[in-house]
């Protein structure tokens, strides 16, 4: 027989949270604001994720959109594309659900301190980056210049529209946005084109800038190339990668990129950590 020390509680037992309110951004995307019991402190790093359990349906991983600099409820921006997320889509304020976490390696604000930060968010990739963007805005004294680039398919797919407007108006952060294209039945006065076109336009000093990138899988290679063309060194690039972080604990194997477990070693990686991993697709 073996003997080891007792741990406090099972890692597989969620705490019960409750949907405080829901904000609808697009046909598919909603912000779920979730209150946790008073005695539970999430205490997360920007870029970390939680496992969300919808009783009777299942569990899935979601990056935390709220910043640890803000007290208050947990915010998850979720697109309805799978079993769990479609079930969530039919839920209302007051409904209970389970939360485990936070898990993974997020952004390290201490390591980024003093850097100019360039956020590059494509589509739903804004959800995890928003945590760090708001962290940097709330503690802007700790960082250099802040710039956010955001691109989505069309105007109707914009996430956090009111917040985007505030960022656009803000003196604290430069903000550039684009849509891939604007269908005729929508109006858009901004620019059209893919997100990589914003990179040469944004003003940043490659020597002092760190880029934080999150978007759909197809986006990474192009964004990284474009950042390199602007003179950014590889280790000045951080990527938040999405995989099926099913257990969140480095065991179930579904999120593996070569030998890396995204749920433990990531989801945030310094680019050189994954540059040569073919399964990272970056």
């Amino acid at each position: 027989m073996l003997e080891t020390t007792e741990t406090v509680r099972s890692e597989y037992e969620p705490v019960q949270g409750r949907i405080a309110w829901i904000e609808q951004f697009t046909d598919q995307d909603k912000l779920y604001v979730i209150s946790l019991p008073d005695d539970v402190e999430l205490d997360h790093d920007p870029g970390q994720f939680v496992e969300l359990f919808v009783p009777g349906v299942g569990e899935a991983p979601f990056s935390i959109s709220s910043s640890p600099t803000k007290d208050g409820p947990l915010e998850l921006c979720i697109r309805a594309v799978g079993n769990v997320t479609r079930a969530l889509d039919s839920m209302e304020g007051g409904d209970p659900l389970g939360i485990r976490g936070p898990y993974g390696t997020g952004f390290d604000p201490e390591a980024l301190a003093g850097d100019d930060l360039l956020f590059v968010a494509g589509g739903i990739g804004l959800a995890p980056l928003r945590s760090m963007i708001n962290y940097a805005l709330d503690r802007s004294g700790e960082f250099g210049d802040l710039t956010t680039l955001y691109g989505c398919k069309e105007p109707a797919e914009q996430l956090f529209p009111e917040e985007l407007q505030r960022w656009d108006d803000s003196e604290e952060m430069a903000f550039y946005e684009t849509v891939d294209q604007c269908p005729e039945d929508q109006t858009w006065e901004g620019r059209e084109g893919v997100i990589t076109e914003l990179i040469p336009e944004a003003e940043f000093d490659p020597e002092t800038t760190t880029a934080l990138v999150c978007g759909p899988p197809v986006m990474y290679r192009f964004v990284i190339e474009s950042l390199q063309e602007q003179g950014l060194a590889d280790d000045h690039i951080y990527l938040s990668l999405e995989r099926n972080m099913h257990c969140g604990r480095g065991l179930c194997g579904h999120c593996q990129i070569n030998e890396l477990y995204v749920c433990v070693d990531g989801p945030v990686f310094n680019y050189p950590e994954v540059r040569d991993k073919s399964e990272a697709e970056v």
């Binding site: 890692e11 009783p55 389970g98």
Partner: peptide, 17 residues
């Protein structure tokens, strides 16, 4: 089994077990 859950009056009891 990793977790059992039961709903009573809109509350969920969730137990690892």
């Amino acid at each position: 089994q990793l977790l059992t859950y039961e709903r009573t009056d809109g509350e969920y009891e969730m137990h690892a077990g």
